[in-house]
Design a protein around this nucleic acid. Structure first.
Length: 193
DNA sequence: GCCACGATAGTG
DNA sequence: ACTATCGTGGCG
């Protein structure tokens, strides 16, 4: 960034598209968390799309409940929730307002200031000190949490079924809405060869 | 109110 | 494969 490359923060226009499209394009982008004076950053290597009210794997499947309502709101906003009482998961809201969709950030390659290995959704939040209390509903184009644009990654993009969504039924479970960079050691869960 | 159940991670 | 741990949402 100091070597002449332009620093561009991804804004609402990037996120105002269908979740699977945004998800794929997020690979290789850099998630930055400014934690007080400390900068923590990691490069996305694995994401998942949750798209539309009919996606049975999505939190929006029951409509705009208190938790999921944020998915119906404007794109480019963080959706952070607690899972299993133990781990946080960070998503970016995508699409047009009224179309519930989001991209779950599952894994990243640590670049700077990471508190933990950002492999897996819960670990990624731990690594960058992202919490529901602080970041749920936060605008992702702000000063504290944002995504930096980057050229398309050199690695091959692979699309696979999403992780742990069996309960959504076969039709939704087999959709290839998980995207990862092949060969990255930071990818979580099942890895295609 | 009550209760079953996770978009997980760590251990065995 | 087993489970810790607690917010969410369905149901009464």
């Amino acid at each position: 960034m100091e070597d002449g490359a332009q620093v561009v923060i991804l804004g609402p226009a990037f996120f105002r598209r269908p979740a699977p499209e945004v998800a794929r394009d997020l690979l290789g982008k850099v998630l930055v968390r400014v934690d007080g004076g400390v900068r923590r950053a990691a490069r996305l290597v694995e994401v998942e799309a949750y798209h539309g009210p009919r996606d049975r794997a999505s939190h929006a499947r029951r409509g705009p409940t208190p938790r999921a309502a944020i998915m119906y709101g404007p794109p480019g906003v963080a959706y952070v929730y607690l899972i299993y009482g133990t781990s946080h998961c960070l998503n970016v809201v995508t699409g047009l307002p009224g179309e519930p969709s989001a991209v779950l950030l599952r894994a990243a390659e640590p670049l700077e200031g990471c508190l933990h290995g950002p492999r897996g959704p819960g670990n990624l939040c731990r690594a960058l000190a992202v919490t529901r209390a602080r970041h749920d509903g936060m605008d992702l184009s702000g000063a504290e949490l944002f995504l930096l644009d980057a050229p398309p990654p050199p690695e091959r993009v692979v699309a696979t079924p999403r992780v742990n969504v069996e309960s959504a039924g076969p039709a939704w479970a087999r959709r290839r809405w998980r995207f990862l960079l092949r060969g990255s050691p930071w990818v979580s869960g099942p890895r295609p060869r």
